[in-house]
């Protein structure tokens, strides 16, 4: 379908100026909102992730692609009944206590949304009890934590322990990332995974949710 592939291209190349127009055109031609999402927007972000991983495109290009997708979603979402919006899964995400870095965490959240996940972002400097309470409240498939500082990394272990204590550890997959985090540390604290970047996080999240 020509229109679908045009819409897809507009996401991949980050055509923020034209994408809303194109989305409306698709709808006028009788295409279903859910179809636009599953057959154009999400595949487009998959391509973007792939290109980023291969070093063909860079962070700013990934950013405008995601923003383009968000513009299109802004039109489509209100047209879909709440229950009908299929999500790939729910991810709770945040930067640990004492750490104010959000750039990597935001990129991860953005790419997960692009892949069709529902993302709940707790922001930065998130206390362990806030992570635990939110896990209890929304029962996400995945909890993702970020830390950029060597001094705040140990907070990730604190959160895992707090989840255990609250009896919630088995309900959620825990994944960690950020410049100061290593795969060895993830194993050491008993996290389920470590991801080095935003596209790695999407691959990991899909695998985990499929299981």
């Amino acid at each position: 379908m020509a229109l679908l592939s045009e819409l897809k291209e507009m996401v991949i190349y980050g055509n923020m100026a034209g994408i809303e127009e194109k989305t409306k055109e698709c709808l006028k031609q009788g295409l279903q909102p859910s179809q636009l999402i599953s057959e154009a927007l999400i595949p487009a972000m998959d391509t973007v992730g792939e290109k980023y991983k291969n070093g063909e495109i860079f962070v700013p290009e990934m950013l405008v692609a995601a923003k383009s997708m968000q513009l299109s979603m802004g039109i489509l979402k209100p047209l879909i009944a709440a229950g009908d919006l299929k999500t790939a899964g729910t991810v709770l995400i945040g930067t640990v206590q004492g750490d104010l870095h959000d750039i990597g965490k935001n990129l991860v959240a953005m790419m997960l949304e692009g892949a069709g996940f529902q993302v709940v972002d707790l922001g930065t400097d998130v206390a362990p009890e806030v992570f635990v309470d939110k896990v209890r409240e929304i029962n996400p498939d995945i909890l993702g934590m970020s830390a950029l500082l060597t001094t705040t990394v140990p907070q990730m272990g604190v959160v895992v322990e707090a989840l255990k204590k609250a009896g919630l550890r088995e309900n959620v997959k825990v994944v960690v990332g950020g410049a100061a985090v290593t795969p060895e540390y993830a194993i050491q604290i008993g996290a389920d995974g470590y991801c080095p970047d935003a596209t790695g996080a999407v691959d990991w999240a899909r695998q985990v949710v499929q299981k």
Partner: peptide, 8 residues
């Protein structure tokens, strides 16, 4: 100093 790639 912070990245220009995410905030120009």
């Amino acid at each position: 100093v912070q990245p220009i790639s995410t905030n120009g």
